[in-house]
Amino acid sequence: MKCGYKRVISSFIDGELGGEKAVFLKEHLKECAACKEEIEVLKSIKSAFSCEPDYKVRGDFTETVIASLPERRANFREKLDWWMDEVLPLGKKLIPVPLVLTAALIFFIAFNAVTPNFITLEEVLLSNHFTLEEEIVLTDARLSDEIALELLVK
């Protein structure tokens, strides 16, 4: 068969081909004898599997399984897993989010606690706690004409 529909035909006979693809294939089958034949062959193979009977499982199978089970009681972790799955299906995936946020907050608080509260010289000067002379000495500023005149008047 050279049509290139093999994969689609296989899905089609399984009832797994939906929507437009199925409509398109049905249209194609009207004019393609090779594809029709392919479908018949695959259906034939498929039907051969249905000859399998159900198996009669040994009567005491369940009892044998139960007897082989160890004693167990859910530990805390298992209960937590189960509970998380119950109340928050995405719980496990989201656990890192609050953890990271908490860690970031702790880091921020700790950093601020140990970091000295530096005040820049400009802030001190703006607060007007110094006299004009002190300002000149601290800032190593060159005297402008106005300031020199002011000092002279003082």
Partner: peptide, 10 residues
């Protein structure tokens, strides 16, 4: 069964 009830698992 998680709580250890074997009959439930049965």
């Amino acid at each position: 069964a998680i709580e250890g009830d074997k009959s439930a698992f049965g």
